[in-house]
Design a protein around this nucleic acid. Structure first.
Length: 576
DNA sequence: GCCGTTTTCGGCCCGACTGTTTTCAGTCG
């Protein structure tokens, strides 16, 4: 019988939601499936384990009916409800629903009146001019559908990581800030929440001349075409293929608008429900009382304050319990970038880095770090020019020499040692014992099956000289999925052995991810935030790693490199 | 289908824009 991962179970419920919606099911039932799917995808603990512990209904959005369906799936590999639904509503309709501008009503119309059940069939019908005859359809809808199918085919992936999105967002914000009629401007949306990947850019402007701002926005050199444009809202496609939304409000409404436009949608829905309970109606413009009185908020903090909540940091706004915690006064005090005292994982020209040890050290010192560990690759990762024991000894001499030219920074000698295919390490225990800090990582054999790759990492974690596991899942955002490694087991072993888990801050990694950071925090696992810098400017990525930690509700106490190095060393496992 | 400091039943956010319409439904975020 297949074993289902959290992602697979979540995908099934998302599919149930889509098919139910096309079928015409009560929308709240559909939303319930979506909420459950989102919770499961971001659970951080293994759904199989939660099921065996009888704790499925502790998952937010999972009640008796959905818990039964999960239980049936995990125990038998079947879900009767799903089988009946897919027999009734062709599953390929999900891809039709995926066409931009096509929602459940149009999907249903095409299916029930023309019998269209797939992208290919819809395309053929549109090309034959058959769609415009349907009620609610017209020539424009028909051509939009064709263009939408085109776009789906040409677009390999529709999300980018923050390393791509941030520079573009900054360019747009800078350009808008130069407009004389613009009073305030900021990016919002998933970028402001520091989601690992970004679908489109959301930018907010305060101005008394929204029409002028919209017009100027459409004419920016980065803009390829305008997708929609009204008086206060414009969506464009950029030259790099991304889409960007611009909203404009009055300066007196900035706080409400920034709160709304930052999202997430689920967070906003929960916040608006809370407002209703308090006798208000919350929108992106204001808070309206039952007597239709209107309160405007120029600052975001005031929105939360008016609802009896402390300020909720953007990284937490995912409807993962932050509003409830805020009401109870139990929001975590999140780690901040200023709390980070040192870096435990970076490279130099001794392996695949782009800068010398001295350049890296001087940059770290200039950034105010107290300590820096040089941790070049080990020899079996051949293409990086990894070090063997001999060169490792030579490197130590250079580190000591550079140390003498530094003022405050403590420069330390470490390694990113390869976890080999069988779980053994690239250096002997004797060599590892001579290093200040050891990160162990998997770079090869990432396609091994779950049990094999997990056993490999666990073996490394049980080595007393291994202090941290680097980028535990091995994912490369938008390029490579995580390995099959059982992170739930890794978290458990980490808590048991005291081996730290890295939050790798490289924009295409962010690994551990936010959901597993959250679970790590719950389990008392020790985390480190490392940039894995290969050149001085990579240290800038620290912000992304810290944001990922914050998205996982981590405080200073959970992050080992917020400690002075002596304290960090004292608390190394084994107490060495 | 889920959920509870108004509820174990009756709620479940709010608004912009477009296209197809003669006042609104559908989609999106």
């Amino acid at each position: 019988m297949p074993r289902y991962t959290n992602q697979q179970v979540a995908q099934i419920f998302n599919q149930i939601a889509d098919l139910s919606e096309i079928k015409g099911e009560i929308i709240y039932r559909v939303l319930a499936y979506r909420k459950a799917a989102d919770s499961i995808a971001n659970l951080g603990r293994d759904i199989n384990e939660a099921w065996q512990a009888g704790k499925l209904q502790e998952i937010p959005g999972v009640g008796p009916a959905i818990a039964d369906k999960i239980g049936e799936l995990l125990s038998s590999g079947q879900m009767t409800f799903y089988n009946k639904l897919t027999a009734e509503v062709p599953p390929s309709l999900v891809e039709v629903l995926g066409i931009p501008e096509v929602g459940p009503k149009k999907t249903r119309a095409m299916w029930q009146t023309l019998g269209l059940t797939s992208l290919a069939e819809v395309k053929t019908a549109a090309e034959a001019g058959q769609l415009r005859a349907l009620p609610g359809f017209g020539p424009k809808t028909e051509s939009k559908i064709l263009a939408g199918i085109e776009a789906l085919a040409s677009r390999a992936t529709d999300r980018v990581h923050m390393g791509v999105a941030f520079p573009v967002a900054r360019e747009l914000v800078t350009a808008l800030a130069r407009l004389p009629q613009v009073r305030r401007v900021n990016y919002a949306g998933s970028l402001r929440r520091f989601c690992a990947t970004i679908g489109d850019l959301d930018i907010l402007v305060a101005s008394g001349d929204p029409v002028g701002v919209m017009s100027a926005f459409r004419q920016l050199p980065q803009v390829e075409s305008t997708l929609l444009s009204g008086e206060t809202k414009t969506r464009v496609r950029l030259l790099n293929g991304m889409e960007a939304d611009l909203r404009c409000v009055d300066e007196t409404q900035w706080g409400s608008a920034l709160q709304y436009f930052t999202g997430s949608q689920a967070h906003n829905v929960k916040l608006r429900e809370l407002a209703l309970k308090r006798g208000f109606s919350l929108s992106e413009y204001s808070l309206r009382g039952e007597d239709n009185s209107e309160i405007r908020f120029a600052e975001e903090e005031e929105v939360y304050q008016a609802l009896g909540l402390p300020f909720i940091e953007p990284e937490l706004r995912e409807d993962r319990g932050e509003i409830e915690a805020g009401l109870r006064g139990e929001l975590p005090r999140l780690v901040s970038i200023h709390d980070i005292r040192g870096e435990l994982h970076c490279h130099s020209t001794w392996s695949d880095g782009q800068a010398s040890i001295e350049e890296m050290a001087l940059s770290a010192e200039a950034r105010g770090y107290e300590y820096l560990v040089i941790s070049d690759h080990s020899q079996s990762l051949g293409m990086t020019g990894g070090l063997g024991p001999e060169r490792l000894r030579e490197q130590r001499a250079e580190i000591q020499a550079v140390q003498e030219r530094l003022h405050r920074l403590r420069l330390l000698h470490g390694t990113e040692v390869e976890i080999k295919g069988d779980g053994s390490l690239d250096f002997s225990d004797h060599v590892l014992a001579g290093l200040d800090f050891v990160v162990a990582s998997v770079h090869s054999g990432l396609r091994q099956d779950r049990d094999t790759i997990t056993a490999r990492v666990v073996r490394a974690m049980r080595n007393p000289h291994v202090h941290a596991i680097g980028h535990p899942s091995g994912r490369l955002l938008t390029r490579r999925d995580e390995s099959a490694v059982d992170l739930h087991e890794i978290l458990r072993i980490s808590a048991e052995t005291g081996t730290m888990l890295e939050i790798n801050a490289a924009p295409d990694r962010l690994d551990l991810d936010d959901a597993h950071v959250r679970r790590a925090v719950e389990l008392g696992v020790r985390l480190v935030i490392n940039t894995d810098a290969h050149r001085p400017r990579d240290f800038d990525n620290l912000l992304l790693g810290v944001a990922t930690a914050r998205r996982g509700w981590a405080g200073v106490e959970h992050i080992a490199n917020t400690l002075p190095f002596e304290a960090l060393l004292d608390r190394r496992k084994g107490g060495v």
